[in-house]
Simulated scan of single mutants.
Amino acid sequence: MDKEEQDKLEKIVRSSLSPVRLAQRAQIVLMASEGMRNQDIANALGIGRVKVSRWRNRYAQSGLAGIEHDLPR
């Protein structure tokens, strides 16, 4: 992850205008970039490990666009 992408994600996390889901996804990606394991991220955020894995994979595939929107159901 480059510095510009990291700055965007940090801005999303800090902004009170960011949707809660997007802020959480950005936090997942930032924590992963620090080398944290899925289980550790899940424990820190109080969510499931599968959810962490899903959003890490979506970010890896599509970048920021991958975490901005839910997939259609």
Rank of each mutant, 00 (worst) to 15 (best):
L17G: 08
L9P: 13
G63Q: 04
G66C: 05
M31S: 08
V50K: 12
S33I: 03
I67M: 04
R25H: 08
M31K: 14
R54W: 01
K8I: 14
H69M: 12
A32W: 09
Q39L: 01
L45V: 00
Q39E: 06
V52T: 11
K51I: 04
D7V: 13
R21M: 07
I28R: 12
H69K: 15
N57W: 00
G63D: 05
R73D: 13
S15W: 07
E4C: 09
L71G: 06
R25Y: 04
S53A: 11
S16P: 00
K51E: 11
I12W: 05
E4P: 03
R37V: 01
L71Y: 07
R49L: 00
R58T: 00
I47K: 05
R56Y: 02
D40A: 13
A32T: 15
V50H: 08
R73Y: 06
N57M: 02
K11F: 13
H69Q: 14
R21C: 05
G66I: 04
I12E: 06
S16N: 04
Q24W: 13
V13Q: 06
S15F: 06
A60Q: 08
S15D: 13
K8F: 09
G46E: 01
K3L: 15
V20I: 14
R73E: 12
I12C: 09
Y59F: 15
R25N: 08
G66F: 01
P72Q: 07
L9S: 14
G63L: 06
S53N: 08
Q61S: 07
A44H: 04
A42H: 00
G66S: 05
N38G: 08
G66R: 02
L71N: 10
D7L: 14
Y59N: 11
E5T: 15
Q24A: 15
A65F: 02
L64A: 04
I41G: 00
G35A: 02
E34M: 05
R49K: 15
V29Y: 07
D40T: 05
E10Q: 12
L22W: 10
A26R: 07
